[in-house]
């Protein structure tokens, strides 16, 4: 992400990060989460689940900001978003 200008407290404020966890066998491929994710994190996978649907997966996991919209909008109770700890964020280094 490119910032047009730097805010004064940029060193102190850290963007929140989350990790999307999908219970693959619950997904019914309604695509709500794919369409409504503000960061376009999720995508349909090519694999099949037990019901014969293509479950979603986090295609851009580094973009997730833990807003929890996919979790709430998923009608199958299949997605949960876990906030990442600061160390974990550093491990999976995000922004350049």
């Amino acid at each position: 992400m490119k910032y047009w200008r730097k805010t004064l407290d940029q060193d102190q404020v850290k963007p929140i990060r989350g990790r999307v966890e999908v219970l693959k066998d619950r997904c019914k491929q309604c695509r709500f989460c794919i369409d409504f994710c503000p960061k376009q994190v999720l995508e349909e996978s090519t694999e099949f689940n037990r019901k014969g649907y293509h479950p979603v997966y986090a295609a851009l996991p580094n973009e997730c900001v833990n807003c929890g919209l996919c979790e709430l909008i998923c009608p199958e109770f299949a997605i949960s978003v876990v906030p990442l700890e600061e160390e974990e964020v550093k491990e999976e280094a995000r922004y350049v």
């Binding site: 966890e21 219970l23 619950r26 309604c30 109770f77 949960s80």
Partner: peptide, 29 residues
Amino acid sequence: QKHYIDQYLREDRMPHIWCPGCGLGSILH
């Protein structure tokens, strides 16, 4: 694997009967 809302759902009844694309699951959540 479990979902955090599973503690308030009767898991033996899951998956629910609502069609793919139905909004009822979101509303219940």
